[in-house]
Write a protein that binds this DNA or RNA. Structure first.
Lengths: 204, 204
DNA sequence: TGATTTAAACTGACCAGTCAGTCTATTGAT
DNA sequence: ATCAATAGACTGACTGGTCAGTTTAAATCA
C-alpha cells in the first residue's frame, strides 16, 4: 500500500503525525496538514470533527499499539518478575520502532492545557496501572519484597519516558543502549537481579 | 511585603505564575494576567518584551532556585554517594515546597513548540549534567560500580519528574511518601544501600 | 441520480502586541 | 518654597494578522 493508494483519512493521519510531531500542536496549521496529505481542509473536517480530536486520535492510536504489544508479549510468560521485565522491554521496543508517535505521546501532548491534560492522565494511569498490577503479582509470587507499587510504577514510567524523550530529541542514547542500561537499572531498583530472558523479539 | 506593596513587576510575575500554572501557556491570556496583577497590558509589555519571555523568565527563575538549593545542600557533604543522595533530597524538597513553579517547569513548559523545547533542553541538560557529575564522583570514590551515567541521570530525572508531576496533578503521593519511597529506589538502582543521612533540613 | 467525498474560497472571532497619552516622582533652577 | 522640566512607570483602546472552522460547488463513486 503506497502513499497514493492509501485512503484519504490515512493520508491525513500520516501527515498529521508527521507535522504535529515536528512542530507541536499549536504551531501546526491545518492548512499544512491538508497540503502534505494531498487533500484539503474540507476533507479533514469530513473525517475529523476538529483539530483537537485529530490530534487526540493520534495519541489514542499509539497508546493502543503500546498496550497491545505489552499484553501480547506478556501472555506467554508466567506471572512474576519475568512479566515485569518483558513488559518493560516491550514498551521500549515499541517506542524504538515508532519514534514520531512516541514524540507525540511523550512530548507534544504535554502542556497543552486542561483538555489534553485529562487525556494524558487517562493514558498515563492506564500504563501505570498495568505496571502496578504486574508488580503486585511479582510481590505475591515472592519474586520481590514489598514496595510502594504506586510510586514505583510512576517512577519507572518517568524513567522510561525521559530516556526515550532524550533519544527522540537527540537520537542518543540509541534504543539498544537504552535497553541494556535501563532494564537492569529498573529491576535492580526493586532488588531484583535479572536473568536475561531469551531474545524473542530480536530474532523476529 | 504584602501583595499591594510589591512592585508591579513582581505582581505580574506572581499572577503569571498562578495563571500559567493553572491553564498552561496557550490558554493564558495576557489580559487576564493584567487583571489579576492589578496592572495593565501596557505594564506587562513595559517589563517584558513579549508573552514568551515572560513565561520563560518563570522557568529560569525556578531552575535557578533548584540549582541553588542543590549546590548549597551538597557543599557540606563529602564527594561520593552521600552527595548524590543529598542532591536528590534537595530537589524533591524544593519541588515539594514550590508546587506551582514545579508544574510550570515540568508540565506547562513541555510541548510548546521548538523555541520552548530548546529552553527545556537547556534546563534538563543542566540538571542531568549535575547528576552525572556526582555519579561519576561516586564511581571514582568506589561507592558504586561502573554504570552508564548518562542513561542513569536521565532515568533518575524522569523518575523524579514523573512522580512529582503525579503529585502536582492529584496531590498524591505526598512529598513525604515520595521521599521515603523514591530515594531508596533510586539509590538501589545503582546497587547502593543507603544509610540514612541525618535530617538537616527537617530541623531548620 | 443521488450520496459521499474532496477542493477551495471564504468568514469572523480572537488576542498578542502597539502607541498616544496620563500620572507620579525627582531634579534643578529661581 | 514654588514652579518648570524631564524621565520613568503605567494605562487601555485599538489594530491587524492569523487560522480554526464553514460553506458551496464540483468531482467521484455506486
Amino acid at each position: 500500500m503506497s502513499e497514493d493508494t492509501k485512503s484519504t483519512k490515512d493520508r491525513i493521519l500520516d501527515a498529521a503525525l508527521s507535522i504535529f510531531s515536528n512542530k507541536g500542536y499549536y504551531d501546526t496549521r491545518l492548512d499544512e496538514i491538508a497540503d502534505e496529505s494531498q487533500s484539503s481542509k474540507g476533507s479533514i473536517y469530513f473525517h475529523f470533527p476538529n483539530k483537537e480530536r485529530l490530534f487526540i486520535s493520534l495519541v489514542d492510536q499509539f497508546a493502543d499499539v503500546i498496550e497491545r504489544n505489552v499484553t501480547e508479549a506478556i501472555e506467554e510468560h508466567p506471572a512474576g518478575m519475568q512479566r515485569v521485565q518483558v513488559a518493560i522491554e516491550a514498551v521500549l521496543d515499541t517506542f524504538g520502532k515508532y519514534r514520531r508517535p512516541a514524540k507525540i505521546l511523550l512530548v507534544q501532548a504535554v502542556g497543552l492545557g486542561n483538555v489534553f491534560e485529562k487525556k494524558r492522565m487517562e493514558v498515563t494511569d492506564r500504563f501505570a496501572g498495568l505496571i502496578q498490577t504486574y508488580l503486585q503479582e511479582a510481590i505475591e509470587t515472592g519474586d520481590i519484597a514489598q514496595v510502594d507499587t504506586e510510586v514505583v510504577a510512576h517512577a519507572w514510567m518517568g524513567a522510561i519516558y525521559n530516556v526515550v524523550i532524550q533519544w527522540v530529541h537527540t537520537g542518543e542514547p540509541e534504543p539498544e543502549r537504552i535497553m541494556d542500561a535501563l532494564v537492569p537499572l529498573l529491576l535492580k531498583s526493586v532488588d531484583y537481579e535479572m536473568a536475561s530472558v531469551q531474545a524473542d523479539e530480536a530474532s523476529a
